Amino acid sequence: MQSTSHRFYWLNFGIPLACAAVVFLMFDMTSIDIAFSNLFFDPITQTFPIDQVHFFEKLTHKWARIIPNWTAEIALIGAILSFVWPLVTPQKHPRLGNFLERTKAAPVLRFARDHRRDFLFVVFAFAICTGVIHFLKSHTSVYCPIETTLYGGKIAHIEWYQNFQLFREAGDGRCWPGGHASGGFTMLALYFVARRYRWRFSKAVMYGSLLLGFVYGTTRVLQGWHYMSHTFWAGIFVWLACLLTALAFYGRVRLDQPVLQKHERRVAVAQAQAAS
């Protein structure tokens, strides 16, 4: 049992912390970020040409927000509805209960009640991830590449660790870590819900969420509004925030259970139905 817990913590904390060390040494301590962004900068016009494409901005920055925004809204609605069914059960209110059954609303309310913890977890995970990213942005005051003198702006380029302030805001810059990338990475909350239920496609949810975050972050790099390392840092912090929140809601043992294969899931569902 102890070796299992050690493995869980080494994997889920050790890998992101190792990634943090690599990102710090490879990007923050070198000029790789700047060299990569230079590929998309036009020194003649002093602009990032892709930043001038309005459709690209709408598609990758504004419309893309729909995915995490709708996910958070659905989770919030589900969390609210989860408290409704206990108040309107047929035992307490027969007429209202019968009406809800006829209108097919009762199954939705029962589902929300049964998954209250999951809906609340997603709501809290999204909120905590957003709070962590906003805290880091305001307490490092890093300006975006396009705002710095390197790319025609007025602010000097600095790294996040050169201006970090723990107990007060460091300035007006709000570019580190990547906020848009973090919006995609917050979908990792769904991975931990999938792990709770030992869903065999949980890793696909994880990889899909990571891919979404990297796509969100990379598009902003192409526009000059972030360095590539900002995306990596966003993914690291969001993972740790989601993981700690999941541990608080579900516990390590539940998250560390092996996934159920299709035939095992049928047996588990049958046993749960028999028990109820």
Score class of each variant (00 low, 15 high):
L59M: 13
T60E: 07
T60V: 08
H61L: 01
W63E: 14
A64I: 03
A64C: 04
R65G: 03
I66A: 06
I66D: 02
I67L: 13
P68N: 11
P68V: 06
W70Y: 12
E73W: 15
I74G: 03
A75D: 10
L76E: 03
I77R: 05
I77N: 02
G78W: 05
G78H: 00
S82A: 14
F83R: 09
F83A: 11
V84Q: 01
V84M: 01
P86Q: 04
L87I: 11
L87H: 05
V88E: 04
T89M: 03
T89K: 12
P90K: 13
Q91P: 00
K92Y: 12
H93V: 09
P94Q: 12
P94L: 10
L96N: 00
L96V: 08
L96I: 06
G97E: 11
N98K: 12
F99W: 15
L100V: 05
L100A: 00
E101N: 13
E101C: 06
R102Y: 10
T103K: 14
T103D: 04
K104Y: 12
P107F: 01
V108E: 03
L109D: 02
R113N: 04
R113C: 10
H115D: 02
R116L: 03
R117E: 05
R117A: 08
D118R: 00
D118K: 00
F119C: 07
L120H: 07
L120F: 11
V122Q: 02
V123D: 04
V123T: 02
V123G: 02
F126A: 01
A127T: 13
I128P: 06
I128R: 01
I128C: 09
I128D: 04
